[in-house]
Amino acid sequence: MVRVATFFAMSLGAFAFWQSMEKVHVWLALRQDEKQERLDKEMEIKRLREEFLAQVKERNSHA
């Protein structure tokens, strides 16, 4: 009886551990995606800012 109870407890523990690791994995993946999106947006803003400043300098040099 003790072996059956131990097996059941270990199986339940392994299942709970597996489920919690799955949730952690999904959370980390979503966090990485959000971080990458934020970095992409920052790079786009930086690129647009540089283009705008180049246009302003070009206009000022012609004036």
Rank of each mutant, 00 (worst) to 15 (best):
M1H: 11
V2T: 05
V2M: 14
V2R: 01
R3G: 11
R3H: 10
R3T: 13
R3Y: 14
V4R: 01
V4Q: 07
T6L: 15
T6W: 12
T6F: 09
F7P: 00
F7Y: 08
F7E: 15
F8K: 11
F8E: 14
F8P: 00
A9K: 09
A9C: 03
A9G: 08
M10H: 09
M10P: 00
M10Q: 13
M10L: 15
M10Y: 11
S11T: 03
L12A: 10
L12D: 00
G13R: 04
G13C: 07
G13N: 02
G13E: 03
A14Q: 09
A14K: 01
A14G: 09
A14W: 11
F15M: 09
A16K: 00
A16V: 07
A16E: 02
F17K: 00
F17C: 06
W18I: 03
Q19S: 06
Q19Y: 11
Q19R: 09
S20F: 08
S20K: 01
S20N: 08
M21W: 10
M21I: 05
M21V: 07
M21P: 01
E22G: 01
E22Q: 11
E22P: 01
K23W: 10
K23F: 03
V24E: 14
V24P: 00
V24M: 11
V24L: 15
H25G: 08
V26S: 04
V26I: 14
V26M: 06
V26G: 02
V26K: 07
V26H: 11
V26T: 07
W27A: 12
L28I: 04
A29E: 15
A29V: 10
A29I: 02
L30D: 12
L30H: 14
L30E: 14
R31A: 13
R31M: 10
R31H: 09
Q32A: 03
Q32M: 06
D33M: 07
D33L: 06
D33S: 10
D33T: 05
D33K: 05
E34M: 05
E34H: 05
E34I: 05
E34F: 04
K35D: 13
K35I: 05
K35Q: 13
K35P: 02
K35R: 06
Q36T: 05
Q36G: 06
E37S: 08
R38D: 12
R38T: 05
L39P: 06
L39T: 02
K41I: 06
K41P: 00
E42T: 01
E42Q: 08
E42C: 00
M43T: 13
M43G: 01
M43D: 15
M43H: 12
E44Y: 01
E44Q: 04
I45H: 09
I45Q: 14
I45C: 08
I45K: 08
I45T: 03
I45P: 00
K46I: 02
R47V: 03
R47T: 06
R47Y: 11
R47M: 08
L48N: 07
L48G: 02
L48F: 09
R49V: 03
E50W: 03
E50T: 00
E51Y: 00
F52A: 10
F52K: 08
F52Y: 14
L53Y: 14
A54G: 12
A54T: 03
A54H: 13
Q55E: 13
V56T: 05
V56F: 06
V56R: 10
V56A: 06
E58K: 04
E58P: 01
E58Y: 02
N60C: 02
N60A: 08
N60M: 07
S61F: 15
S61L: 10
S61N: 13
H62C: 04
A63R: 07
